[in-house]
Nucleic acid binder design. Structure first.
Length: 471
DNA sequence: TCGTCTTTCACCTTTGAAGCGG
DNA sequence: ACCGCTTCAAAGGTGAAAGACG
């Protein structure tokens, strides 16, 4: 585990209005490291894919981090959200990912609170923090608080540490954000890359039944055969399964390929942590894309950059929904982060940023929410690039069942106020015009994969009056 | 209408928590 | 209170079918 770099967050004390209190600037010492780094890197080098389903699917590998530098006696909230890597939609074409067009309008952004939140710093630091129960869904009407993503789009998790006594004071607090390049992934409804499938099978305990050529395979073939016998129409396709089971490794992992070598490890990645026992094929499905698309026309990039350089001092109107932004992964080829393996693997990218957060205290999850019922396809189409984030904070009831944790969903009041809130991004006039990406900026993003932000922001949020203040 | 791509569904195995009895 | 066994919900991936789209 390589410790993350954390930029000292404050050069001056935060405003006294912040719930974080006078000790908040000590948060600059917070460090976050990613557990299972080797596993993440293994997936990342092939091109991580995460299944998303209607009922919600856990991630594998799941997010697990270590934190140090918290004030032991202060309370913190940990949350995760998923940020788009870029403004593109992808498709899997002949063993590699290709850009398939502009990204769809972003679904409502949800943030997953770690179920222990809020908890003392000592609690967070005493053991790795697992986000095992975080689930991803493609159901934009999801009522369970899962994180909503678009299939065939690229995302990366962002971890936020907030010093706050309760979930409501989150919106007054300074967010310290950490990201890990190795955790970027493509959301899919079915695996595209067979190598990823194999990796998942080899490493995910729940997929154990699909491992092992010697025992389970035969049983599997038999089961499949029995099943297909029930469906006469499928009989002619029966050999297909057998072929896959027998010959898959031959097709997908040609002799001599490093990936084949990986297969031989039988998924025992623990061994691989030492030396280079596991050789992962250096091929990255993103490399090709990077080569021909260094310069991107992603409106997201232009806009996010613009947002980044533009002070957001205007109090938010009811219709204003500030974009979230991020500073890396600007290229449609997330391999920019792939290259990070030699530029600080396991090191988190640090941002001090403030998600637009607000609450609807009396939300009734049993009632359909206007903003979630808004038919996405029918909503006004807006530019796919700028993230139509509405800052929806959400928390699964089941996971918030402990005393002291707010047991209801937290939604953006903007969305609640506006039927089209989450679906209709603000009209172009509400946002600064796209800012041209300078070559320097692009180069920096591509080469370093990420960069540290020098912007410190506080968020003074009120359900009806929200604005940023850039220090 | 057709072909391609994507999503959904039913199926099966494994895991681990909960419940129960000794 | 502890231990071991059983049960069952939820997790995983699969192939096939259905749906969407050009």
């Amino acid at each position: 585990i390589i410790h993350s770099y954390v930029k000292p967050n404050f050069s001056s004390p935060p405003p006294s209005s912040m719930a974080a209190g006078p000790d908040a600037y000590l948060q600059g010492n917070i460090r976050m490291t990613l557990e299972d780094l080797e596993l993440w890197k293994t997936f990342h080098e092939i091109g991580t894919e995460m299944i998303i389903t209607k009922p919600g699917r856990r991630m594998f590998p799941h997010c697990k981090v270590n934190i140090t530098g918290l004030i032991p006696c202060a309370k913190y909230i940990l949350l995760v959200d998923m940020l788009p890597e870029d403004g593109f939609r992808y498709k899997w074409n002949k063993e590699k990912w290709e850009v398939a067009g502009k990204a769809e309008p972003q679904p409502p952004c949800r943030t997953y609170f770690h179920p222990d939140s809020p908890a003392l710093g000592s609690h967070w630091m005493k053991q790795p923090i697992s986000f095992l129960k975080l689930k991803l869904t493609n159901n934009t009407l999801d009522q369970h608080g899962h994180i909503i993503l678009h299939s065939m789009h690229r995302y990366h998790p962002c971890f936020h540490v907030v010093q706050a006594d309760d979930l409501f004071s989150v919106r007054w607090s300074v967010f310290q954000t950490f990201t890990f390049p190795e955790t970027s992934f493509t959301a899919v409804t079915a695996y595209q890359n067979t190598k990823i499938t194999k990796l998942k099978i080899n490493h995910n305990p729940f997929a154990k039944g699909f491992r092992d050529e010697g025992t389970n395979k035969k049983r599997w073939v038999l089961q499949t055969s029995e099943r297909t016998n029930k469906k006469p129409a499928c009989l002619e396709k029966q050999p297909k399964m057998s072929d896959i089971l027998k010959g898959d490794s031959e097709e997908d992992t040609p002799p001599g390929s490093s990936f084949e070598g990986y297969d031989r490890e039988e998924g025992d990645l623990a061994k691989s942590k030492e030396a280079d026992a596991v050789k992962v094929e250096p091929y990255s499905p993103w490399v090709a894309e990077r080569e021909h698309s260094v310069r991107t026309d992603s409106p997201a990039e232009a806009d996010t950059r613009d947002m980044y350089n533009t002070e957001q001092l205007v109090p938010a109107s009811a219709s204003y929904q500030p974009y979230r932004f991020h500073e890396y992964g600007k290229s449609p080829s997330p391999s920019s982060s792939t290259g990070s393996s030699n530029s600080g693997s396991g090191r988190s990218n640090f941002e001090s940023r403030v998600p637009d957060v607000a609450t609807v205290p009396d939300h009734d999850s049993s009632k359909p929410r206007t903003q979630e019922l808004g038919p996405a396809p029918c909503g006004p189409q807006h530019l796919p690039g700028p993230q139509d984030y509405t800052g929806v904070l959400n928390m699964t009831m089941a996971q918030a069942g402990k005393p002291g944790v707010i047991g209801h969903h937290i939604y953006s009041p903007y969305s609640a106020e506006q039927p089209l809130g989450q679906w209709s991004g603000p009209g172009p006039a509400q946002y600064p015009p796209p800012h041209h990406l300078t070559p320097d900026y692009t180069t920096q993003a591509v080469h370093h994969g990420y960069k540290k932000t020098a912007v410190e922001m506080y968020h003074y949020s009120d359900p009806f009056f929200s604005y940023y203040c850039k220090k």
